[in-house]
Design a protein around this nucleic acid. Structure first.
Lengths: 221, 221
DNA sequence: ATATAATATGACTCAAAGGTCATATGACCC
DNA sequence: GGGTCATATGACCTTTGAGTCATATTATAT
């Protein structure tokens, strides 16, 4: 937790530090991120930084916590609206919201993705593992519920599918930044791209890629 | 490339250095991996290390290149045997072989996975990006071929599916180390576990998780 | 035995990091 | 003005890292 001093700072200054820090982490990764560079960029003294934060880890943890809060605040109300829909509609909404948030906060999102992907990261245990449990529980319950409603194959392994849906969740964001944002700069509107990607992923999770063997598939996506 | 001196070394000494280095990278990650610690562990002088390698990056690149060669040597002949089988049989064989190799070389495999997952890694560009192109090309051709044979839905996006199959390939290894190796120490034989995992992943990619809507599904896995 | 080439060595340099601390500044109240 | 508190400062300390180099050792050849 940052020290009280940090929260007493003028909003502009606080935001400057946060923005610069995110940039630093995104550009150099955690280990190579330098407090010296950050304070220079912010035009604050080294000592001041340590009035605000315990250390580098404290800084990163603050940024991630803040992001989690912002994301939750953005996602929750939208997700509530579809909470009674079928599984794939909910999943699709989750992907769309996640992608939209990433598009609106690209650097923070990429920073978080880095942490999410490297188990060696000094904050992985404290931040990721702690939340992962909640995610798996949420997904498992959702899956169970949807199986009961007859929307999913009853023979799936809950733990496995939870795992893979989380992994694919990460991959969607990656795919968005790598392929869509990476190549052409101005294609369609962002929202269209995002919806296309979400549809592709959900469609994949839903039906796989094998040619249907006789049965008709009614697409409700 | 390591210097000639390194390859002139006695096999045992060379292997010791490689093993210690892999351990170091796996334990601390690239940035925090220390040449000082490595040479101490090997009981060689700092200067000797720099007779063998240009620098830390050179060392890691050597280890990854060697792994790639070992893996290729192990995988290729097995993969040849199923080259005319249907898509999912080939994919399944790919997963099984990859998992077996990882099980036999766990530390090297985990080291490689780390690199694969972090785009900030100093060797990502040179190593991963270079090979990625080949992987995508291979998968795209395989997909095209299989679509022509009527095994896959013709409406899939080749780029997207190549991407996701690569991502899932990574996830299988993760899943293996996290869940299977992580929990119980001695369950069934390794091979059984591996085959189970490969089946789950291929089944997922093949059929997705939605309950089939009327059509019967003939499982040939 | 001597000369030449290959290899081994670890003290050393230089740079950069994280983190501390005594001091300075400024805001606010009496 | 005088006193108190929160905040700001940057020189400084310690540690650690990567990488160098003059020198010592060993092996090979003649």
């Amino acid at each position: 937790m940052p020290k009280e001093t940090f929260f007493n700072l003028a909003e502009a200054k606080r935001k400057l530090i946060e923005d610069v820090a995110v940039d630093e982490f995104v550009t150099y990764g955690y280990d190579k991120a330098s407090i010296n560079r950050i304070v220079k960029s912010c035009n604050i003294a080294k000592g001041s930084f340590y009035q605000y934060f315990e250390d580098k880890k404290d800084l990163l943890k603050h940024l991630l916590t803040k992001m989690a809060q912002d994301k939750a605040k953005y996602v929750s109300p939208h997700l509530l609206k579809v909470k009674d829909a079928d599984f794939f509609t909910i999943l699709r909404e989750m992907y769309i919201l996640g992608l939209k948030f990433s598009a609106d906060n690209p650097r923070v999102a990429q920073m978080a993705n880095q942490v999410l992907k490297s188990k060696h990261h000094p904050v992985y245990q404290e931040i990721v593992n702690a939340n992962m449990e909640a995610v798996y529980t949420y997904l498992s319950n959702l899956l169970k519920h949807s199986i009961a409603k007859g929307e999913l194959r009853p023979d799936i392994d809950l733990r496995f599918v939870s795992y893979i849906i989380s992994a694919i969740n990460l991959a969607t964001v990656e795919y968005y930044f790598d392929i869509v944002k990476g190549k052409e700069v101005n294609m369609g509107s962002f929202d269209e791209d995002i919806i296309d990607i979400a549809n592709m992923f959900v469609d994949f999770i839903k039906k796989g890629i094998a040619k249907p063997t006789g049965g008709n598939d009614n697409d409700q996506g």
